[in-house]
Write a protein that binds this DNA or RNA. Sequence first.
DNA 1: ATAGAAATAAACCGGTCGTCTAGTGCCATG
DNA 2: CATGGCACTAGACGACCGGTTTATTTCTAT
Lengths: 214, 214
Amino acid sequence: MNLTKKAQVTRQHILDTGYRLVLHRGFAAMGLMEILKECGVPKGSFYHYFASKEAFGCALLQQYVDEYIEKLARLLAETGNGRESLMRYWNAWIADPTSSSDSANPVQGWADDCLVVKLAAEVADLSEDMRRVLDAGVQQLLARIAALIDEAREDGSVPDGAPSPALARMLYQMWLGAALLTKLSQNRMPLHQALIATETLLACDQTPPNVPIT
Amino acid sequence: MNLTKKAQVTRQHILDTGYRLVLHRGFAAMGLMEILKECGVPKGSFYHYFASKEAFGCALLQQYVDEYIEKLARLLAETGNGRESLMRYWNAWIADPTSSSDSANPVQGWADDCLVVKLAAEVADLSEDMRRVLDAGVQQLLARIAALIDEAREDGSVPDGAPSPALARMLYQMWLGAALLTKLSQNRMPLHQALIATETLLACDQTPPNVPIT
DNA sequence: ATAGAAATAAACCGGTCGTCTAGTGCCATG
DNA sequence: CATGGCACTAGACGACCGGTTTATTTCTAT
């Protein structure tokens, strides 16, 4: 029992360091030895916990998705009307209000730790399994954002407009693009601009011609 | 002289097949042998034409950027007012009007062949040189789009609104995100939705609070 | 015919993922 | 307390592929 618990800890340790590494190197470029050396786990153990590198990747992504949704729930649990909650989320992309930032850890937001930004393009062609996990996570998130928009509209803090699923996706796309350009240009301006644009879009109450919603 | 020309052809051949492969496998995951086997060039030759894999990557990206700008110029050379030109560009993301599509080559647009979508996240952390090439290309493109918006506003086909550089970037980000989600979900709906959103945004003449530009 | 550049072939070394066998520690049962 | 069994650790090993370098051949121009 205690033993099993310790084993789970080891498995978790592998996943955590894997996350840190994959965030910067990418999935294919990250070797297993790199992870295992860093957390002092022998190779034999790895294949005890995971059937393959791909299976490991799936577990990694699944855990990331789950934790993301949880983190979002915690962020939204604070007080504030619908619009404030929504904007708290987008603001977190730029700077996570719950994480402290000192000189060693410069100001960072969710955009900097986002595996969708880092891996979506790579994984989409690499592994069907990993693609599905990440895609399902994104769909889940989009649904939550859409619901958030609906709530904000119900309490009157956001005006009516485009269908909430369409608007949610549009906003998310914009932030993905902003995070990508920020990575590429090493300049956080796109993120700040996205924040302004988000406010504009939320205020924009003109409904576009019918958008097919999936 | 003829020889030199033939050499250039070989080099070009390597770059072209490299582009096709990197578009699906990614840069790190694509081995040199994969390229060289496909175009029948021996390994030794590769290092005659390119100093390293990274240098090859830079040349690949540089050529991609240059061709992209040219392709854009050709697309915009056709008749139409400013707004029509602009929308022709975004439409091309979904389906390139200049490329024929048959059953073997299903309908494809620029989004499917975009190296920014595929490589930005990977390259940003992998190689400073490659990052710079791609970033410079994006900046060049953004400037062109902003100019296009200005032209459209001058001929009255697009209303005034947010500063054109900010609007251009916002639109581009949205399309990047849409292309990413399309790859991830294997569903082209995000692209179509981006098209609707683009029209809405162009019509939206409310200026957001001052946006610091670049 | 020959000097020298252009192009190629082959060897190199390190790292890849994954397998496999051996060994350790812990728990439950007799 | 012994013993068998299971979860886990340990790391050597294999086959292969990574990018790079060096040596060699091929060709052209003088």
